[in-house]
Each structure stands twice: as C-alpha cells, then as structure tokens.
Amino acid sequence: MVRFTLLNRSTNARMRFDALQGDKVEEVMSAAIDVWGCESGLVLRDGYSLLSPDVDVDDCILDNDVVEVLPDPFRR
C-alpha cells in the first residue's frame, strides 16, 4: 500500500489517499475528479514528472509524497 497526499493546485485543498498494489494512476485521477469535479480533465504531477494514467501507482509514487492535481491544459 502507498499512502500519499493529493494537492489540488486550483483550490489548495488536500486529500490523503491510500492506493493498493496494482492500482493505476487513472484510478487516482478518477477519485480526484469525483471529489473536486473537474470536467475538463486532470493531470497528476509528482515533482517534475507528469504521471501516466496507465502506470501502477506503486511504480511512480512513494509513501508520503505530495502529488499535485492540475487541470489538463490540453483538454478545454
């Protein structure tokens, strides 16, 4: 299990998130959309890297990371 924080850069709201082994980044994005409701889509950024939706969470996010949630600039 990976435990991390999602930080919505538009509102500065935070949400703790627990992801199980094998969960995809896309599932995290869907949960963020459900909570914060962004119709134009979201991207997740950890440090300088944008996270690909089809990658496993445990391959790209570490415990206690702060993952930024940003509006998708290509979907308007």
Rank of each mutant, 00 (worst) to 15 (best):
74 F>V: 01
67 V>M: 01
18 D>K: 10
1 M>I: 11
34 D>C: 04
44 L>D: 03
76 R>T: 04
12 N>A: 12
36 W>R: 06
74 F>T: 00
49 S>K: 15
24 K>G: 06
26 E>Q: 14
40 S>H: 07
33 I>V: 15
75 R>P: 00
4 F>L: 05
65 D>C: 01
14 R>V: 11
69 V>Y: 02
32 A>D: 03
61 I>S: 02
33 I>R: 13
8 N>P: 08
8 N>W: 10
49 S>D: 13
47 G>F: 08
47 G>V: 06
74 F>L: 04
40 S>V: 04
55 V>E: 13
19 A>T: 07
21 Q>G: 15
67 V>D: 01
13 A>Q: 14
59 D>L: 12
8 N>S: 09
59 D>T: 11
6 L>T: 02
9 R>M: 15
5 T>W: 09
14 R>I: 09
69 V>E: 01
6 L>N: 03
56 D>Q: 13
7 L>N: 07
13 A>K: 14
29 M>W: 02
13 A>D: 11
59 D>H: 12
59 D>I: 05
23 D>M: 13
3 R>V: 12
47 G>S: 08
6 L>Q: 04
2 V>R: 09
38 C>R: 05
54 D>S: 14
47 G>T: 08
9 R>W: 14
39 E>I: 06
25 V>K: 12
52 S>C: 15
46 D>F: 02
69 V>R: 00
9 R>I: 15
64 N>G: 06
12 N>T: 12
49 S>H: 12
39 E>H: 07
70 L>P: 00
44 L>T: 03
24 K>C: 08
30 S>G: 12
16 R>Q: 15
19 A>H: 07
8 N>M: 09
1 M>H: 14
39 E>S: 10
10 S>A: 14
22 G>H: 10
53 P>R: 03
52 S>Y: 13
16 R>V: 13
38 C>E: 05
14 R>N: 11
33 I>E: 09
36 W>D: 04
52 S>G: 10
32 A>E: 04
4 F>G: 03
52 S>E: 15
75 R>E: 00
18 D>F: 09
66 V>C: 03
8 N>K: 12
12 N>D: 13
51 L>A: 07
63 D>M: 01
71 P>Q: 00
7 L>H: 10
14 R>H: 12
15 M>G: 05
7 L>V: 07
58 D>T: 08
4 F>Y: 05
10 S>M: 15
23 D>V: 07
